[in-house]
């Protein structure tokens, strides 16, 4: 193990390490801690110049209550759910199929198509912006959730295919050959042999894509404009102009907007990290 396990060091070094850990963590999360503290302060604290001291009263329920009952925030959150969940389902479904095709079969153009997916996944969004917006407008999907979902599914298919194909490549190929010898049809091999084995990959991808899409801001800005379809990342700017300079409410609002992906991460941590670090170990 590298570095040397701390248990093999002198007791003083161990104590120092134990002391350093929380200090480092507080420094690392300082900006966030400050915002969390903002969000439980009363408004009067800001007028009195009490920014970082002990809050004069704890207004957690009041502040977060304002966010939930006195703003469009719940609507934006719900929009985000309605955009994110179908995208996850769509992108994972499509990439199970493309990953299967590219991972199992040998045919001319296999690597070419695979590399097209990888390359497309790296392009800057701006090169797609004008045509995609134009296409969405002419399809009558501008400012709808569906317009956003369709684009997200298409774009995420690139990353998901990379992921799925490499995962399927690592499965034992003998399984598929054995099934073929038994006369199982290709479609059934996909459904009954490969798909069940892909469950861990599907879980990891779902969590990752959920976070990516929930956090998308650029496409929300390009393809939507009002509380009808805007997800929470774009909605929060309108929220902030509703409560301009009221830091206690703005910070509560952004914490609410951040909670779903954070909760997803802490609940599905193993899958999330497995997905994110795929390929980091040979």
């Amino acid at each position: 193990m590298f570095p040397t396990p701390i248990q093999k060091r002198p007791v003083a070094a161990q104590a120092l390490y134990q002391g350093l850990l929380p200090i480092a963590l507080i420094m690392w999360l300082l900006p966030l801690i400050a915002v969390a503290l903002f969000s439980i302060r009363p408004f009067s604290d800001f007028g009195a110049g009490n920014y970082w001291g002990w809050p004069s009263s704890f207004e957690m329920f009041h502040n977060y209550g304002q966010v939930f009952f006195n703003s469009d925030m719940p609507r934006y959150l719900w929009n985000s759910v309605l955009i994110t969940v179908p995208t996850v389902v769509g992108a994972v479904a499509l990439s199970c199929m493309t990953g299967f095709a590219l991972g199992i079969y040998r045919f001319r153009g296999n690597l070419l198509i695979f590399f097209m997916f990888i390359a497309g996944n790296f392009v800057p969004f701006q090169i797609l912006m004008v045509p995609v917006r134009d296409f969405t407008v002419s399809a009558g999907l501008y400012d709808t959730k569906l317009g956003l979902v369709l684009f997200h599914i298409a774009f995420q298919t690139g990353f998901c295919t990379l992921f799925m194909r490499n995962f399927i490549r690592a499965l034992p190929y003998e399984l598929i050959e054995a099934a073929r010898v038994e006369g199982v049809s290709e479609w059934r091999i996909f459904w009954y042999v490969v798909l069940p084995l892909m469950r861990p990959a599907t879980a990891a991808l779902s969590v990752l894509i959920f976070t990516f899409i929930w956090n998308d801001y650029f496409w929300a800005l390009v393809l939507t404009q009002g509380p009808n379809a805007q997800p929470v990342t774009a909605g929060i700017t309108s929220f902030n102009s509703q409560f301009v300079a009221q830091y206690h409410l703005m910070s509560a609002g952004s914490i609410v907007a951040a909670i779903p992906p954070v909760a997803m991460f802490f609940l599905m941590q193993r899958h999330f990290i497995a997905g994110l670090t795929l390929g980091a170990v040979k």
Partner: peptide, 9 residues
């Protein structure tokens, strides 16, 4: 999907 939304644009 990928062609319509990524490659062609």
């Amino acid at each position: 999907f990928f062609a319509v939304y990524v490659v062609i644009p």
